[in-house]
Amino acid sequence: MKTSIIPLLLACAWAQAETDVPSVLRAQVLLDRHHFSVGEIDGLYGTNMRQALLGFQHAKGLPETGKADKSTLDALDDGQPALVTYTITDADIGGPFQPVPESMADKARLPSLGFSSVEEALGERFHASPGLLKKLNKGKDLHRAGEEILVPNIAGVEPLPKATTLVVSKSMHTLMLVDSNGQIIAQMPASTGSDHDPLPIGDWKVNGVARNPPFHYNPKLFWDAKPDETKATIPPGPNNPVGVVWIDLSKDHYGIHGTPEPGNIGRTQSHGCIRLTNWDAALVADAVTPGFAVVLKE
């Protein structure tokens, strides 16, 4: 039987391409697929990645180095490539895209708060920074339907096991989902308050989940609100101040939510609430129900 060599050549070419993926980028993608999120995949080693590695290593009983060492990469390896090709569609470039205004009053005048650019929309879809997508696809036109680009392979993820408790660590800037055996089954970076609006340490519960919610802005609740600002209802969308998900907590005015600025998660302060990337917030929303236990700790 005659066998074509072309598929073999393509497989070899892909294997070679996969060996060229930097270990940091490969680890970030694999961590994402194992539910130990670095937040925005950017190919850079920083605090969010270190915490994700430490969390994964702890969960798997590996030496807790905080580095993408061989034993950790071996444990992360699920046999799938870190990067895959994606063909840009008409829907991807169709938008509508529009700049997001700074003021709440101007935001409130818009019909929705969608993406500001194709790059932002693709970054959200593939959990990646727009900068990384541009770096991976030099010479490619991200605004052309039919263009094939390289993206992080975030598909084929195993379902998240059942969680029983949600834990937020102020000192680690992380949110963790824990099962009934006390095992961490998911972890993600979080912005967890500030000196003006500290994280309310203690035991709380989930009241409920709102998806793609409007945001009811009340300047009296924000220490940095401008004197002339008034109450406003901000329309839904990924660039809404609370992103695509609001998980209401039993502490008044506090919740867990998404963000319009995924690159800032774990690196900047919040107004007291627990802020995640939109995709991580959506994962948490799927894992919790009303009455779900929440522990906010130092």
Score class of each variant (00 low, 15 high):
A282I: 03
Y254F: 15
W279T: 11
G291A: 08
S250N: 09
G291H: 05
N239D: 11
I274F: 01
I265M: 08
D252H: 06
N240C: 15
L283F: 01
G237H: 10
H271P: 07
L276Y: 13
P260W: 12
R267P: 00
G272M: 03
A281T: 09
N264A: 14
G237W: 07
D248K: 11
W246I: 01
N240T: 05
D248F: 03
G272P: 02
P290R: 13
H271A: 15
G272D: 02
I247A: 03
N278Q: 12
D252N: 09
G266N: 11
L276H: 12
I247L: 04
I265Q: 07
V295S: 13
P238R: 13
Y254K: 05
N239I: 08
H257I: 02
R267H: 14
K251W: 03
N278M: 13
C273L: 04
V245T: 14
N264M: 11
T259V: 03
H257P: 00
G263Q: 13
D280H: 02
Y254T: 01
G258S: 05
A287G: 08
N264R: 10
I265C: 08
Q269L: 12
V242M: 14
I247N: 01
I256W: 00
V242G: 05
I265E: 09
P238N: 05
V284R: 11
T268H: 07
N264W: 01
D252C: 00
L249C: 07
I256K: 00
T268K: 12
P262E: 06
V288I: 15
L283G: 01
P290M: 14
P262M: 08
E261N: 13
G291F: 06
A293E: 14
T268W: 02
N240I: 04
A293C: 02
I265G: 08
Q269H: 06
V244S: 14
D286Y: 08
A281Q: 10
V245S: 02
T289Y: 15
G263S: 14
L249E: 05
G263K: 10
G258Y: 03
S250I: 09
A287T: 07
I265D: 09
T268R: 10
N239T: 07
R267Y: 08
K251C: 02
G263W: 12
R267T: 10
V244L: 15
T259R: 02
A285P: 07
G258F: 04
L249F: 06
T277W: 10
